[in-house]
Write a protein that binds this DNA or RNA. Sequence first.
DNA 1: TAGTGGTCTAGACCACAAT
DNA 2: TTGTGGTCTAGACCACTAC
Lengths: 251, 251
Amino acid sequence: MVNFEGKPAYLQIADELRQQILDGRLASGAKIPSESELMAAHDVSRTVAKMAIGVLRTEGLIYSHPGKGSFVRVGEPLRRRTGNRYRRQAQPPFASDASSAGKRADWEFETVRESASPVVAERLKITPGDQVMRTSYRYFADGKPIQVSTSYEPLSITGGTDIELPEEGPVVGVIARMDHIGRRATHVDENVTARTARDHEAEQLGIPENVQVFAILRTHFEAETPLETCDIVVPSDRYELVYRIPVEESD
Amino acid sequence: MVNFEGKPAYLQIADELRQQILDGRLASGAKIPSESELMAAHDVSRTVAKMAIGVLRTEGLIYSHPGKGSFVRVGEPLRRRTGNRYRRQAQPPFASDASSAGKRADWEFETVRESASPVVAERLKITPGDQVMRTSYRYFADGKPIQVSTSYEPLSITGGTDIELPEEGPVVGVIARMDHIGRRATHVDENVTARTARDHEAEQLGIPENVQVFAILRTHFEAETPLETCDIVVPSDRYELVYRIPVEESD
DNA sequence: TAGTGGTCTAGACCACAAT
DNA sequence: TTGTGGTCTAGACCACTAC
């Protein structure tokens, strides 16, 4: 390959492919040229072709499947919108956002009773070893997994009530359920970080390893008392987080 | 290298180094073994040593400097906390958060008058070509750049007032400045996405290319009227975004 | 001058997919 | 059987850094 601009060959090839992906010439799901084809087309070694593909993969634009090839990863509604509309409505907190975006939403869950780990205990302001109800969720949009989360509720709050099991009570949604037992959620804290997906998360989300995700720690409060805390993990290239914060009137 | 567990050698080496970084044996800023040393220690080719280092680099744990080596990137307060405390106080909106974290905070800026691009016009609900005041900021914590942002204010709102130039008026901070001219900010929208840093952003932030960043679009509103909109870019492995959302009382 | 990481070549063997 | 990407070897030249 003729190396102009002083830019390494693998970056030039990556730039070219990226452009084709972003402007639609390589459509979503399309197979990108194989390593062999890139070698021939640009007159470079396989290493260089592989490096170019590696750049796009770490950018989350493509994924590679051994024996098949590499394919464009961007979906049409590339970024799904989640949000902060915490209202006193009986609605599943996140799944409804997905469904309102025109996607069929469903989810699976598993609820178990267990002792609080030190980390969870600190977030719920309880003592490590106290009983909590842990519910693990996996959300699907049009049948594809797009979110995993794990919710923890102290049994000192929900134990013995008919909303003890989150998904089997008369109402759904943390706020509505807590209302039902006389606990009024006042605010929700969300703590957003970005990192690469853990192996098990990548597996559950059906994404390649090392893809970037948002890790959101969400806690519902009644004044200073945590009512529930939840770990939410979503692929960051599929999501846009939307927050609306009121300006305090106090001076 | 003896390949047990069926795990590729480069991932085993990466795992080993990652463990040493996370548990502190390789401290922040420390030099990790060179490629040559990894080759000798594990009896692998340079390619494999390089791949192991590449894994850690894409995870943001290390950076490499040609001619010197690779170094641990995690700082002690690895994640700086920014937030959503939008109050009617005279304080720089983001820099104060950094300084409260025990870091010396300063910033540079440049203000220019220009015509609104279509994108900016849409966000400010004005007509493309309308005059806006654009201010580009770069924030430093302990002398190191940690945030770049670009703010746009419609001159139809601030033009001719003494807060027209954001950094040269009698008060600072969007909310306080708007108060000063009788505009009451009611809420702030923040729109969070994650992506890799653009070349110029990486340069301004002094980070390697392809590092992940948070891209935050922030807009101050007075009811339905945008008062200001701002593009904020921060390295996502240095930041933790904290949001507190009140639960609406209406049923 | 010696060591470092960045780039690149030219091969190799493998498991897996498609046919 | 052929093509694919995943892994890996054994080199090379370069620019930059440290001494």
